[in-house]
Amino acid sequence: MYFLWYLLIGLVAGWIASLIFKGSGSGLLVNLIVGLIGGLLGGWLVSLFGWVPTGTWGTLLSSIIGAVVLLWIVSLFTRHKPVKTV
């Protein structure tokens, strides 16, 4: 049962992070992956500051923080080709 709860929190966190970072969602699967990885990253990051996320809202907040950081890191490594004007 907790596995489904973690998937739901990851999906919501990935969706919110993609709205914050890009302004639009990225699709169900990408949001889920970003949210789940962001949950791990966010839990680790906030623990560095001495905060241990508890409860649903704490877990969701740390997952959103991690997902936004993950999207930011990915954007550093992806290149956008400039559009040539004729």
Rank of each mutant, 00 (worst) to 15 (best):
Y2C: 02
W5G: 00
Y6V: 08
Y6K: 10
Y6I: 11
L7I: 10
L8P: 00
L8D: 01
L8M: 08
L11H: 10
V12C: 13
V12S: 11
A13K: 11
A13R: 11
W15Q: 04
W15D: 01
S18D: 07
S18Y: 01
S18R: 10
S18T: 09
L19K: 14
L19V: 04
L19N: 05
I20D: 01
F21Q: 06
F21V: 05
G23D: 00
S24G: 04
S24Y: 09
S24T: 10
G25P: 12
G25N: 12
S26K: 15
G27W: 06
G27M: 13
G27S: 12
L28H: 08
L29A: 15
L29M: 13
V30W: 02
V30K: 15
N31R: 10
L32I: 10
I33V: 15
I33C: 12
I33Q: 08
G35E: 04
G35D: 06
L41K: 06
L41E: 02
G42F: 02
G42Y: 04
G42W: 05
G43V: 03
W44T: 09
W44G: 07
L45Q: 01
L45M: 07
V46A: 03
V46P: 02
S47M: 12
S47D: 11
L48D: 01
L48E: 04
F49C: 07
F49Y: 08
F49A: 15
F49K: 11
W51S: 11
W51L: 14
V52G: 10
P53G: 08
G55K: 01
G55R: 00
T56R: 01
W57T: 12
G58E: 02
G58N: 06
L60W: 03
L60E: 03
L60K: 05
L60N: 05
L61R: 03
L61H: 00
L61W: 02
S62K: 10
S62D: 03
S62M: 07
S62L: 06
G66K: 06
G66N: 07
A67Q: 09
V68L: 05
V69D: 00
L70N: 07
L71P: 09
W72S: 14
W72N: 09
I73Y: 05
I73N: 00
V74L: 12
V74K: 12
V74C: 04
S75Y: 01
L76N: 00
F77C: 07
T78D: 03
H80Y: 13
H80E: 14
H80R: 15
H80W: 08
P82D: 09
V83H: 13
K84N: 13
K84S: 09
K84E: 12
T85A: 12
T85N: 12
T85H: 13
V86S: 14
V86C: 07
